[in-house]
Design a protein around this nucleic acid. Structure first.
Lengths: 218, 218
DNA sequence: AATAAAAATTAGCCTTACCTAATTTTTATT
DNA sequence: AATAAAAATTAGGTAAGGCTAATTTTTATT
């Protein structure tokens, strides 16, 4: 049996593994979970014994096939529950993450698949993140950000890279959600600020950090 | 903050309190949870400190107003999730209890109310148990069992007193569910066995224990 | 009332999953 | 290569929530 903490570590390692080419170190895991590196070392030992990860000082931490499978299922459940909370229970964008963080740990063999079916097999969660399929396959993930768009270019908001409440609430205030059309009017070379037009409305200026947090489709 | 274990103890005490007139002893709680009495004594101390219960050797364990409120909310969530699992995700009667046992601990202030609304404010869960209302009120609970019916009498299955898989699966095999009409043909005085007719079908014999586990409406 | 049985409690131990502080190893910088 | 800094690891500790075994208290039975 895999414990709640173990699941959280697997999910964390999975997430860190998305930034390809990056070595996953104990410190990186500790920072990501807000835990002490010493605790991480303990857990690395435990997950290694359970054959869910392989730890090599040169290569860092890597998920085994089983670890990958387990982590993918947790992410799948998390994202499906997010869809449920938003679409069925009427929660807002910025409220669902923490609840899904608890729901993702509910254990039942057929739960994810039943929920998936009930929700109509959604491909992306409310933040635009791809929902792993029952077979482990993953819909395309977006990688271009608003900050990559050329001045004058149009794009469509596809996902958010940052899912903190502060960012999501800011998006709401700006009237931006998944699918919103944005035109990049100008890039301020001084600090990377972006002048944009949201759904054809009047120009607004946002920071470079903001632009890098919004994934888009061209 | 109230922990998962504390919630389980509160729920257990709440459940034991339903059998009115019964003193709730540490041993009763231990038996009910499958824990050691020593562990129960520890938890009684903890819950007393948190002012969720009052323990008096004469009167046994009782919930305080706050304990009652917390326990009721857990039961409410449990039963609402059971409705969700059965009606929305298509689980069977005997599969939902254990999953709801996990779901009931998901913490969010508005979750129960949103779920309640989404499900159309159901009054009873799939086992026929009343779902506490948002204000703490509780729909009428059935107390007459099939074993109380007079020979020749008709009744309608309103709820189950026993929610073990073995009982629920047996019910399924007998084609009995909430709402099924049953006629009590005869009571065998030797061992209390009951000869019944389910939905007007041919006679079948069930045990006294069975009859006492089925709550009915006359 | 004496005694046996049952229940409650205490004492001490275990595991999980964290922690801090100290130490060792690795990586970077001069 | 020497050294400083950063990262990893070890050692030992804590709180929660279980456990067993031993003891005390309560309840029942003779």
């Amino acid at each position: 049996m895999i414990t709640l903490s173990e699941e959280n570590y697997l999910k964390c390692i999975y997430r860190l593994g998305q930034d390809k080419g990056q070595k996953i170190t104990p410190t990186a895991i500790a920072d990501s979970l807000g835990n002490n590196p010493a605790s991480v070392v303990d857990m690395i030992r435990k997950l290694t014994e359970k054959q869910l990860i392989i730890y090599d000082k040169k290569k860092g931490v890597e998920l085994t096939a089983q670890g990958q499978k387990d982590a993918t299922l947790i992410v799948r459940k998390h994202r499906l529950w997010e869809v449920f909370l938003l679409e069925k229970l009427g929660y807002h964008w910025d409220e669902i993450h923490d609840i899904a963080e608890e729901l993702e740990h509910i254990k039942d063999d057929s739960l994810a698949d039943r929920l998936d079916k009930f929700l109509g097999f959604p491909e992306y969660d409310p933040h635009g993140d791809p929902i792993p399929k029952a077979n482990g396959k993953m819909p395309k993930r977006y990688s271009t950000t608003l900050a990559d768009v050329k001045a004058g270019g149009f794009c469509r908001v596809a996902a958010v890279k940052d899912t903190t409440s502060s960012f999501l609430q800011y998006l709401q205030k700006l009237d931006i959600s998944i699918g919103t059309k944005i035109q990049l009017i100008e890039k301020i070379s001084f600090d990377g600020s972006l002048v944009i037009s949201i759904n054809g409305a009047e120009h607004k200026t946002v920071s470079q950090k903001f632009g890098e947090s919004l994934l888009i489709d061209i």
